[in-house]
Design a protein around this nucleic acid. Structure first.
Lengths: 241, 241
DNA sequence: TTGATTTAAATTGTATACATCAAGTATATT
DNA sequence: AATATACTTGATGTATACAATTTAAATCAA
């Protein structure tokens, strides 16, 4: 290995405690329910307790971890009830901001949405699950942002935070079972949704949004009921869903 | 003054930076838009920077302040667009969790809701605006909690955080103009809403919820258009609303 | 005077030391 | 042996010292 390469690798780029911990939670590297003690995180990240603590407080604000006074942090649970409530609230809020986005989106909004849509397609072709989770989130968040209502945006961001952990499982299973139709369906719906918003067709956008959520729900359901899935991560009984 | 009393007063009770700063923002003591530098807060609260910084991070998570890297914190703005988006998102989410609360509320939920309802009546009789703001928030949050959907709960908590600052103005104006009918209306709607939830009457609960939100909207509108109001705090033009 | 550049002050970000709290272990007493 | 108390240990909460960044002030040149 050349020294140049080495120095580049050794060059300590600023580690963002929040980003790193968040990614590990979303990617299920930190399983739901496990406790996160500051010392371990400090040792792993090579930072002091201050930025780690501040990251934990931010993450608690997002609902990804739970803090208990004098008792540290634990990764938020993810169970079947979580799934049901995600879809219950998600369906409603998604429809609301999607309709508003049709009415209020600017050209910049459209460009931003389309950028995320294309990024998702690239990530899917690269079979990069973590990147897909992120770009899918971005795609939907940018539509929510185009609604012009920050409360819908933030509400949906909260929902997507938990949804990301589920999507991680689902996408993994899609590639594991090599389900090309599932991939195509997601991309097609993203494309149709983008076009409907571009054309300001509120009813069509809402209908696509509902269909997209439904497909997502079905995909996750089959993913959970397939024996090969990472269902253990959810520590749930699929029968109840 | 007896020494016993003095020692009691002097006994430094633990100051919670988060609670104190939040209260000051909600009560508009810290006006929307002003910058909050750590040093001032540390001097005022008599705490070190650590708990103050952690409080600011929490408050930023709630949307009450905005943090910019290396540039400190400022209290979130509150303008007419905020008002419109609050009601836009609030109407929808309120109706959703109210219906769910009718279907899912436990006896404990009912007791909890009623407790907050009575607390609000007491605070109103005491003409304690800050306490009213708090107990009104509690009343609605406990209904949201009874929905059994944490995303609706947290979404509405976010909306109420900003709503509290507006309610502060509105309630103040109610007492300033000595509008007894407005007070009675709020309490009556709270009572009717509670009863509808108790009886599991989803349609009626939703209808009352809509009427309550409408009355709230109208009250704030008249409060803003009255010259005596604390409208300056909102730095807005009422004509646009 | 105006403008840009440098320098100094103030503010925020990070690291670490100290204080407090919780839980587990050991010892003593019944 | 069982329970209770005290102690030890580990972790979290707070305070403070140090580093890096931003803002302003001051100096100099045009």
């Amino acid at each position: 290995m050349s020294t140049a390469k080495l120095s580049k690798l050794n060059k300590k780029q600023p580690v963002n405690a929040y980003e790193v911990i968040r990614r590990r939670i979303v990617s299920l590297e930190y399983a739901p329910g496990i406790s996160l003690d500051e010392k371990s995180l400090v040792d792993e990240l090579g930072l002091s307790r201050t930025p780690v603590r501040e990251a934990l407080i931010r993450l608690a604000g997002e609902g990804l971890i739970e803090l208990e006074k004098n008792k540290g942090a634990k990764v938020s649970e993810l169970n079947l009830q979580t799934l049901q409530t995600i879809f219950e609230a998600g369906d409603l809020i998604e429809r609301a901001y999607t309709r508003l986005a049709c009415l209020r989106r600017t050209d910049d909004d459209l460009a931003s949405i389309n950028e995320a849509r294309l990024e998702f397609e690239r990530d899917l072709n690269n079979q990069d699950v973590a990147a897909m989770v992120h770009s899918n989130t971005e795609f939907h968040l940018r539509i929510a942002a185009a609604s012009g209502n920050k409360y819908f945006l933030e509400s949906y961001r909260r929902i997507l935070a938990d949804h990301e952990r589920i999507a991680q499982i689902w996408y993994s299973d899609i590639f594991r079972s090599d389900d090309r139709s599932a991939n195509q369906k997601i991309c097609r719906q993203h494309d149709e949704l983008y076009q409907a918003i571009e054309q300001g067709d509120t009813d069509r956008a809402e209908a696509i949004s509902i269909a997209h959520a439904h497909a997502c729900k079905e995909g996750i359901r089959s993913s959970l009921s397939s024996g090969e899935s990472l269902i253990a991560d959810l520590n749930v009984q699929t029968e109840e869903y």
